[in-house]
């Protein structure tokens, strides 16, 4: 009996402490969050995507921008320690770490001037980022040699014509 009461109290304590109901444990896209914001607002969600750009510092906290597979990017706010695991951020040279963020979704966060964001409770790196290759097609290399040559010839003709005119 005491065990049952303890368990109930424990669950109640956890619910009170977290203050947010769990909305979804499966990954959601930004589009889905914006479309059904009334369903997700203030709830704990799990958002999966690529960490892109930069980690933006705010004292002991930071922002990480996360891009879902459909291309929707959302700001994730949390303590700096949570983002320590992220080592690669997406840009021209790299695809960023694929991370999973568990946190509270705000359709219009009162703490951050109405931004749509996620306040992270946990960030997990699922897949490390990697270097992106940008191969140059052979026809572009050939054209890059011929075209400047044509420019030189035309510039020379222009100079000669100008002198004789």
């Amino acid at each position: 009996m005491i065990r049952v009461i303890r368990s109930i109290l424990g669950i109640l304590f956890f619910v009170c402490l977290s203050g947010h109901a769990e909305a979804a444990t499966t990954e959601i896209t930004l589009d889905e969050l914006l479309k059904n914001y009334q369903q997700y607002d203030g709830k704990i969600i799990t958002f999966k995507g690529e960490a892109i750009g930069d980690i933006i510092l705010r004292g002991k906290f930071c922002w990480v921008n996360v891009s879902d597979p459909a291309g929707g990017v959302i700001g994730v706010f949390g303590p700096r320690e949570l983002a320590e695991e992220i080592t690669c951020l997406g840009g021209y040279r790299f695809s960023g770490d694929i991370i999973s963020v568990r946190g509270v979704f705000s359709h219009a966060c009162g703490e951050h001037g109405g931004d749509t964001d996620i306040h992270a409770e946990k960030i997990t790196v699922l897949e490390k980022g990697k270097a992106l290759s940008h191969l140059v097609e052979p026809w572009k290399i050939r054209l890059s040699i011929y075209l400047p040559g044509i420019v030189l010839v035309l510039a020379l003709i222009h100079l000669i014509i100008r002198r004789f005119r």
């Binding site: 021209y92 940008h134 191969l135 140059v136 572009k140 290399i141 054209l143 890059s144 075209l147 400047p148 044509i150 420019v151 035309l154 510039a155």
Partner: peptide, 17 residues
Amino acid sequence: EQAALFDFVISSSFCLA
């Protein structure tokens, strides 16, 4: 940025020509 470099060489040269 090698790939971009070639793209801009082509575009610039084409415009100049």
